[in-house]
């Protein structure tokens, strides 16, 4: 915990009756009054303090003005979309041309994703949401992901580690299947005119092939027929 250092003894403090005037003379547009100027000429303590304060204010005012990241507008746009969080997730999904699915299963996907977001929390732009959908699919065989979406991207909820993580690592909590599901995209995302997903399941969980509801979820999101090919096959 930081302890504020005591004022070093060699740093003079201004006379208490002149302190307000000293400070009021600092900052943009301030003008030093004649009486203060006269006092500073005759009081070394006030002159020294005033000089230090003036220097400090110049350094503060000289800090660069930062450019607003473009993501602010994007995330704000989503945050301001009317309706509850599920409506907003649905709106974001609808806006993406890649995701086509029967309503019932889209609703299931929306529920799954919306549960990850707190009320009125920022939602990522469609491109990032696609990544989140893909990650959600990866989590079908594992626990449910807990990802907090901030205005500037994804944020891990893992406890502080001694070594920094090497990449995004998402912790999941709901078990759908015991083993990891390995999905390989067989098409490039942007190459096909319709830019649709296509996944080939190459490995099921240790307990057996993917369950029907899992295959249905994949089919709903991908718009393709999905089947479990079993371990090692492609």
């Amino acid at each position: 915990m930081h302890t504020t250092p005591k004022t070093p003894s060699h740093l003079s403090e201004p006379c208490s009756e002149w302190l307000d005037a000293c400070i009021a003379s600092l900052g943009m547009g301030s003008v030093e009054e004649g009486s203060l100027t006269e006092h500073l000429g005759s009081c070394p303590a006030c002159a020294a303090a005033h000089g230090r304060y003036r220097n400090q204010v110049a350094q503060l005012a000289g800090l660069p003005r930062l450019s607003v990241p473009y993501q602010l507008e994007e995330s704000l746009g989503f945050a301001l979309t009317p309706g509850g969080r599920q409506d907003r997730v649905l709106a974001a999904l609808t806006a993406s041309p890649r995701l086509e699915a029967p309503d019932a299963l889209r609703h299931q996907l929306v529920e799954t994703l919306a549960g990850d977001f707190a009320d009125e929390e920022a939602l990522p732009a469609p491109a990032a949401l696609d990544g989140l959908v893909e990650q959600s699919l990866r989590d079908l065989a594992a626990e449910r992901s807990t990802v907090r979406v901030t205005g500037s991207g994804l944020q891990s909820t893992r406890p502080t580690q001694a070594a920094p993580p090497t990449g995004r690592q998402l912790r999941s909590i709901t078990a759908v299947a015991a083993a990891a599901l390995l999905i390989i995209a067989t098409n490039q995302w942007m190459s096909a005119p319709e830019a649709s997903y296509s996944f080939t399941v190459v490995r099921g969980n240790d307990a057996g092939p993917l369950q029907p509801h899992q295959l249905a979820m994949l089919a709903a999101v991908t718009g393709r027929q999905c089947s479990s090919l079993g371990e090692g096959a492609q």
Binding site: P5, L11, I23, Q56
Partner: peptide, 10 residues
């Protein structure tokens, strides 16, 4: 200013 003096002077 007192706090800034202590923090910024060093």
């Amino acid at each position: 200013h007192g706090a800034l003096d202590r923090e910024l002077t060093p």
